[in-house]
Design a protein around this nucleic acid. Structure first.
Length: 566
RNA sequence: UACCCCGUGGUGUAAUCGGUAACACAACGGAUUUUGGUUCCGUUUUUCUAGGUUCGAGUCCUAGCGGGGUAGCCA
């Protein structure tokens, strides 16, 4: 079945594995995955990789396949409903659907408690009275084994009693924990009697104060997977060392509905940004950006507000592949996927960011006309629109130079340039203010050059520029975004990452003048401001009559590149 | 200096059983173009190192080197 989003058919070690499982007849052919976010922050483009993987698998391996959305909400001190809502919205926006299969680890608290009790009965878990410090000290180090807790060999009866009383709230936070009884000398620290329950007298966003103890991730995750009959539990590389513990639990707990297994893949790293929730949270809390959905953030909500499309993100996720190699992906790959999508779907429009007034001296004062402009050259069906033109226009300051360098095709004194879709104009006079800043150009237009016509014997006019009728233009604010950081890998530097922020990551342009059709611009519609880039209405700040546009991404600009090299 | 994972152009990935290392991005050059956009054509650059097995190794074996991860009552 062809996937129009797919640059090419993809395979990877995960898909190979699943095919092998199916060939071996495991799980009766079912493929059940899950996307398991903790509701303690907003989703970012790295999560999109995991979402596309897990939900993508469910689409590819259907009909005996599905993907669950499960909130891993086992730590009430960090989790909030606000995050649950944003996560659901972001997954849906990316184009995925969990159907009936929305779950919360907190829904399993009772079952998990039962499983813990079962381990106690089997002599595979014990209540430890040591302090956190003592537990840390007796855990050993990376190079030396740990030592047994003095409470390790409590009787089943005593453990059962103590664990029940932990639940009943008889003990203070930190007074006791439940540990799995595995091997304090294991070279894998996760197997040195890991803590599986801690006392935490905190209100949970869903269960309120019903519980005074909560399961740890290492305990809750594999068992939640098993409860949901997950077949393939896919997570990132840093959980690799936890796999033996995952398997230990699946093997040692009886009566589980499923027998999932865990495999790990490399998380996404992107150049010129940071991806850890902790760092993103700092950017928000310390005011370096304006919230989680700041268009400079790599969050899904930030990318959405900036004007990214879900299709572009999905194509990007396919392009980057899936491996166990800890790679750093060039953000240019993301931007390429974006431009490719936007080029196809964006409506073209004229916008002048930094206007210079142009007066067409031979154009009648009271006249006006409408020029037919193509809405999208990539899509004939999108048609044309009439754009008004009169004696006074705005053009962009970048499109005029008094003393241009060689190769400059735009307007200069005495020079000629074509107004896109209209006609050529010639500049006769440059008017400046006291500071020497150009304020107005006196020009004449050539009616014989309409519709791209080139009169005989005249040199071809190479420069084509966009324009807006001064009499009809509507003002707007335009926000220009650049990369958030000045270095490719802020994480790899010795400085604190906040010292590497790009001071020019946001430029607010308040002088923009737009063609009038843009007054009806909608948040959902993407636009290309011709010769400038792709822009989207800001969903938060834009108002009718006070439009705000975000630059999603600029057009490739080989002239700017050439100038930068000079 | 313990254990686990990983090393393919500048970047991200692919390569069936061991059989001519390929795709995309980026960069560079050119053509087309009423967007210095798009599109098209072309160019540069690759298997971490050293041995071994083999007619033949990116792939198998050994040793080394390099990178990442791990000592929360976080996930």
């Amino acid at each position: 079945m062809a996937d129009s989003e797919s640059p090419k058919p993809r395979t990877d070690f995960i898909r190979d594995m699943i095919h092998a499982d199916q060939a071996a007849g495991r799980n009766d052919g079912w493929v059940i995955t899950r996307f398991p976010p903790e509701p303690n922050g907003y989703l970012h483009i790295g999560h999109a990789k995991s979402i596309c993987l897990n939900f993508g698998l469910a689409e590819e391996f259907g009909p005996k396949a599905r993907c669950h959305l499960r909130f891993d909400d086992t730590n009430p001190t960090k989790e909030e409903t606000e995050y649950v809502d944003s996560i659901e919205q972001d997954v849906r926006w990316l184009g995925f659907d969990w159907g009936e299969h929305l779950y919360f680890a907190s829904d399993y608290f009772e079952a998990l408690y039962g499983y813990a009790m079962q381990l106690i009965e089997k002599g595979l878990a014990y209540v430890d009275d040591q302090t956190p410090e003592q537990i840390r000290e007796t855990r050993g180090t990376l190079t030396s084994p740990g030592t047994d807790s003095p409470f390790r060999n409590r009787s089943v009866e005593e453990n059962r009693d103590l664990f029940a009383r932990m639940r009943a709230g008889e003990f203070a936070n930190g007074a006791k924990v439940l540990r799995a009884k595995i091997d304090m000398a294991s070279p894998n620290i996760n197997l040195r009697d890991p803590v599986i329950y801690r006392i935490l007298k905190a209100a949970h966003h869903r269960t309120g104060d019903a519980w005074s103890l909560y399961p740890m991730y290492d305990f809750a995750h594999p068992l939640s997977d098993a409860i949901e009959s997950i077949t393939h539990s896919l997570c990132t590389l840093e959980f690799e060392h936890h796999r033996p513990l995952y398997e230990w639990l699946i093997q040692n707990v009886d009566g589980l509905p499923g027998q999932p297994y865990q495999r790990e893949f490399a998380r996404l790293n992107l150049t010129y940004t940071v991806m850890s929730k902790r760092k993103l949270l700092r950017l928000v809390k310390e005011g370096f950006v304006n919230g989680w959905d700041d268009p400079r953030m790599p969050t899904i909500s930030g990318l959405r507000r900036r004007g990214y499309t879900p299709e572009a993100i999905r194509v990007f996720c396919k392009t980057i592949g899936l491996t166990k190699f800890n790679a750093v992906t060039d953000v240019a790959l993301l931007e390429h996927a974006l431009r490719e999508d936007l080029n196809r779907r964006a409506l073209r429009a004229f916008a002048v960011l930094d206007p210079i007034k142009v007066v067409l001296e031979n154009y009648p004062e009271d006249a006006e006309e409408f020029i037919d402009c193509v809405n999208n050259p990539e899509d004939e069906a999108s048609g044309t629109r009439p754009v008004p033109l009169c004696r006074e226009l705005f053009i962009d300051r970048d499109d005029f130079m008094e003393e241009p360098p060689p190769g400059y095709h735009r307007l200069r004194p005495g020079g000629e340039v074509r107004l896109r879709y209209a006609f050529c104009i010639q500049c006769h006079e440059v008017i400046k203010d006291e500071s020497g800043r150009v304020t107005e150009l006196r020009c004449t237009y050539d009616d014989a050059t309409r519709h791209g016509k080139k009169p005989e014997g005249r040199p071809k006019v190479k420069g084509i520029i966009h324009w807006v009728s001064a009499r009809h233009a509507i003002p707007a604010e335009v926000r220009l975004y650049d990369r958030l950081f000045t270095v490719e890998q802020p994480d790899a530097m010795e400085q604190d990452f906040t010292e590497l922020l790009n001071p020019e990551s946001l430029t607010v342009v308040t002088t923009a003048q737009l063609e009038p059709s843009l007054a009806e611009a909608t948040v959902a519609q993407r636009y290309q401001f011709e010769r400038l880039g792709y822009f989207a209405v800001d969903a938060v700040d834009s108002k009718p009559g006070a439009l705000v546009f975000n630059r999603t991404v600029g057009l490739k600009d080989s002239w700017a590149k050439q100038m930068a090299k000079a």
